[in-house]
Amino acid sequence: MSVVVVLVLCSLLISGGFLLAFLWATKRGQFDDVHTPAITMLFDDRTPTDKP
């Protein structure tokens, strides 16, 4: 029985960690704009010589 309790606690801790990560990301505005990053990630990086 005690093993199950330990496992339950572990799983709650892990999933709770994910929940906290989600809450943190939402508060930081990670989900405010989910369209533009999908476009910008395909652009080539600027080469150092490009920079003024």
């Binding site: 369209h35 533009t36 476009i39 910008t40 652009f43 600027r46 003024p52």
Partner: peptide, 25 residues
């Protein structure tokens, strides 16, 4: 897409621009 690309590189046209971020929606 081109609009996004260009508007995120405004610092290359005006050096006073520090950063430009597009929200396409």
């Amino acid at each position: 897409t081109s609009c996004v690309w260009l508007l995120e590189q405004l610092d290359r046209i005006d050096s006073g621009v520090l950063r430009s971020t597009v929200d396409v929606m």
